[in-house]
Write a protein that binds this DNA or RNA. Structure first.
Lengths: 221, 221
DNA sequence: TTAATAGTGTCTGTGAGACATTATGGT
DNA sequence: ACCATAATGTCTCACAGACACTATTAA
């Protein structure tokens, strides 16, 4: 129960109108075609938008993100990160709505898509793919999410856990190249990442060329 | 006027209780003693806290920050940056309150302090200085603000505009040392910062030793 | 045997760190 | 003349980039 409280204007806290608070999430993944993609769902208006929902009473933002992805896109098992609050008063025609943008990373195979409800769009070709611009500044959110993801992948091996273990350095590098959407130097990549990986005694098999050693993500640091 | 809208649970948007949204700001500065300090104001309960306020209807978060600093601490002329949303449901005993943490940087001389209302506390000695822990997770906010400020000062010369122009490389380095709270190597500092500064034809005077060239912050990049 | 890929060794250029040397003011 | 500080020159070491060379498998 709120405790009565007067601010500097001597109005009760509960007197003020309050904004609705929504969460919108850019779910990023790497497609089998090695492209960085984002999950979009159909909006009520018929177009496409990022999955989102309104925050329920007493709910954590993270829990609202997980709930929205489960209900709207059938996605589970996530670790969302907060990006930014979008607060333009006129950004949403449903009223005064603040949106807290989030980023999440999910393996492509975990995104069992119902094509009528959800789809994965390559971030590089977002505008060309969409019939109409995304509402509510969602394009800004995707841009911020991609920038954040690239910053994380530039430092650590697959922090989003997109690659099933064990994996080779080559497959890890191809994943990172998809995230960065540019070629990475094999030498520099190996020097940066190999110390952060746990080696196994196994090697890859079934392909031409010398079999590659298999690694797992590092146990400690 | 909000447009009626039914979500997946078939409840009207306006049916849901909404959270109060507050802004809390860590105003950082460097004191004449070359310490990194944060502005605290007296709370209604008698202790100390970060200056903050509730978001008014239709107001931008940035404007709420500026209003709070003006009203509660007499500070003007700011460029706040958003840091993070704190959403623990029980963090505020006045009810369901989300707090959007902000960072701002202000020259020490612009903080005309009324000692009964506001004070500057060295961030390094925060816990030792305070009679009681800060409420509402404000210590977390300060830690995040200091980390963000240090990241910015590691890259660019005085992005917060704390130093009056023109200035010498030595005084700029002493400022950056105060922000980082560690010694910086003069050689590396000069090599990183001098290309980002605009030289003037003047030199410092009135001190012992060879006069130093004076610089201004870079015009472009 | 050849093609293809994995993995290693090594050369080079750049830049950080360290420090010596010169420049130029005040005392 | 001497001291203090600014400014410059240069040596060394670490590392990124580049590339040659070896290793190991499938076809």
């Amino acid at each position: 129960m709120p405790i009565p409280y007067r601010d500097s204007s001597d109005r009760l806290l509960t007197d003020y109108p309050r904004p609705s608070v929504a969460v919108d999430t850019a779910v990023l993944t790497v497609t089998p075609e090695a492209e960085l993609g984002v999950l979009l769902v159909r909006s009520e208006a018929g177009g496409w938008r990022l999955p989102g929902t309104f925050l329920h009473p007493g709910e954590r933002l993270v829990d609202a993100v997980i709930r929205a992805l489960d209900v709207k896109a059938g996605v589970r098992g996530l670790a969302p990160r907060q990006l930014h609050v979008f607060d333009e008063p006129d950004r949403d025609d449903r009223g005064w709505v603040l949106s807290v943008a989030h980023l999440d990373v999910v393996p492509f195979d975990s995104l069992a898509q119902d094509p009528d409800r959800a789809t994965i769009v390559p971030t590089a070709a977002l505008e060309a793919w969409l019939p109409a611009p995304l509402p509510y500044g969602h394009a800004q959110i995707i841009a911020a999410a991609v920038a954040e993801l690239r910053a994380e992948y530039a430092e650590r091996p697959d922090p989003g856990g997109l690659l099933p273990e064990p994996f080779t350095l080559s497959s890890l590098r191809r994943l990172h190249e998809a995230v960065a959407s540019r070629r990475l130097l094999p030498d520099s990549f190996r020097r940066l990442m190999q110390p952060q990986l746990a080696p196994t005694d196994d090697v890859s098999e079934g392909s031409v060329g010398k079999p590659a050693r298999l690694f797992r993500r590092a146990p400690a640091a």
